[in-house]
Simulated assay, not measured.
Amino acid sequence: MKIIHYIPSIDRIAGGTSTYMQVLGKELGKLAEVHIITHSSDNPLPISNCEIHNVSVYNPINGRFKNEVSKLFDVIKPDLVHVNCCWMPACAFVQQMAQKRNIKVVLTPHGMLEPWIIKRHYWTRKLLALLLYQKAAIQNADCLQATAESEKENLLKLGYNSNIKIVKLGIDAESITMKTFWKKNKQLLFLSRVHVKKGINYLIEAADILREELQGYKIVVAGEGDADYVASLKQQIIDNGLQDIIQLIGGVYGDKKWELFQTSDFFVLPTHSENFGLAIAESLASGTPVITTVGTPWNDLNTSNAGAWIEIGTQPLVDTLRRFLSLSDEDLETMGKNGRKLIETKYSAKVMAEEMMEVYQSIV
Score class of each variant (00 low, 15 high):
125 R>E: 07
320 T>D: 02
264 S>R: 05
275 N>D: 02
256 K>N: 04
50 C>G: 06
335 M>H: 06
83 V>C: 08
312 I>Y: 07
223 G>Q: 01
354 E>I: 08
345 T>V: 09
170 G>P: 07
330 E>L: 08
70 S>I: 08
40 S>G: 12
312 I>E: 02
280 I>P: 00
28 L>M: 14
109 P>V: 09
61 I>H: 09
83 V>N: 00
32 A>Y: 07
274 E>P: 06
319 D>A: 14
53 H>N: 11
330 E>M: 14
312 I>S: 04
146 A>G: 12
131 L>K: 11
342 L>V: 08
292 T>Q: 07
181 F>W: 04
84 N>F: 12
205 E>V: 06
203 L>R: 01
139 Q>L: 13
291 I>V: 14
233 L>G: 04
37 I>N: 00
56 S>E: 09
177 T>C: 10
152 K>G: 10
289 P>L: 10
224 E>V: 09
180 T>E: 10
81 V>P: 04
176 I>C: 11
275 N>S: 08
268 V>M: 00
311 E>W: 00
279 A>N: 06
158 L>K: 03
63 G>H: 05
28 L>Q: 05
223 G>P: 00
350 K>C: 08
318 V>F: 01
324 F>G: 01
356 M>G: 02
142 D>C: 08
240 N>D: 01
130 L>F: 15
65 F>Q: 04
197 K>H: 05
286 S>F: 01
189 L>K: 01
73 F>L: 09
178 M>W: 09
168 K>Y: 05
85 C>V: 13
99 Q>F: 15
211 R>K: 12
231 A>L: 14
173 A>L: 06
126 K>A: 09
24 L>D: 05
265 D>W: 03
30 K>Q: 15
20 Y>I: 01
64 R>A: 13
218 K>F: 01
41 S>K: 11
112 M>D: 11
112 M>W: 08
163 N>K: 13
178 M>Q: 15
81 V>K: 12
206 A>N: 02
349 A>Q: 08
183 K>A: 12
266 F>M: 07
197 K>F: 15
309 W>N: 03
328 S>L: 10
188 L>T: 00
350 K>R: 15
286 S>M: 04
105 V>A: 11
257 K>Q: 05
316 P>Q: 06
43 N>Y: 07
65 F>S: 07
320 T>L: 01
13 I>R: 08
231 A>R: 11
218 K>A: 02
115 P>A: 07
290 V>E: 00
49 N>C: 07
266 F>W: 12
329 D>C: 09
254 G>K: 05
206 A>M: 00
108 T>C: 13
100 K>P: 02
246 I>R: 00
171 I>K: 00
185 N>Q: 15
355 E>D: 13
343 I>A: 02
277 G>Q: 10
323 R>C: 14
288 T>V: 06
59 N>P: 11
208 D>N: 05
203 L>I: 02
291 I>K: 01
229 Y>V: 10
160 Y>D: 06
234 K>Q: 11
61 I>F: 14
175 S>T: 14
71 K>C: 05
64 R>I: 15
311 E>K: 14
17 T>G: 10
12 R>Y: 11
113 L>D: 01
343 I>V: 13
284 L>V: 03
184 K>T: 09
260 L>H: 00
167 V>T: 05
285 A>Y: 06
266 F>N: 03
132 L>G: 04
352 M>N: 05
157 K>G: 04
250 G>W: 07
331 D>E: 13
153 E>W: 09
143 C>Q: 12
91 C>W: 01
11 D>Y: 04
288 T>C: 10
99 Q>N: 12
159 G>Y: 04
60 P>I: 10
201 N>G: 04
